[in-house]
Amino acid sequence: MIERFLVWLGETPWSIALLESLWVWPLVESTHVLTLGLFVGTTVMMDLRLLGIAFRKVPITAFTGRLLPWTHIGFIIMTVTGLLLFYSQPLRYYHNLFFRVKVLVLLLAGANVAIFHNGVHRHAAEWDRDASPPRAARIAGAVSLAVWTVVVVTGRLIAYNWFDCDIQPQPAWVNWMAGCPVPLR
């Protein structure tokens, strides 16, 4: 079901044009990579503040109020360019081990953001100027650093076909995780 949709998606004229374009694909990919500096960069600075490692005299609400809009801009650019890159080769990425790990960890990253903003950040006024924020906030910062590191590394490794379905033989767990339809023997 999903596979048939992705095959269809990859055969749409715009998908083929994007993949084969001399300039557009590299420009989209470069925008995706360079926006890391904005999106993950501003996220990392806020994480360091949450951990109480850096910016200890800068209130948390300065970060969540004034720097976060820039993180959001970064997130929108990452999402749009990321979806375009997926659209250029949907089936290949769907069966790419690193892509699958990246998407799973992205979900974890999203859950961490939701837990932080609906949890300890609701009472941010009480610990706004604490050099070392409460435990829940420090955990959110540490989890954020860890998950975004994994997202960046797996994202970069998507480019490599080491575990692709047409490269066989592979260990059974690799074929299972990559969802390879017919593991060759």
Partner: peptide, 8 residues
């Protein structure tokens, strides 16, 4: 990523 954040 870190360079981008520290600069921005």
């Amino acid at each position: 990523c870190m360079l981008g954040g520290a600069l921005l």
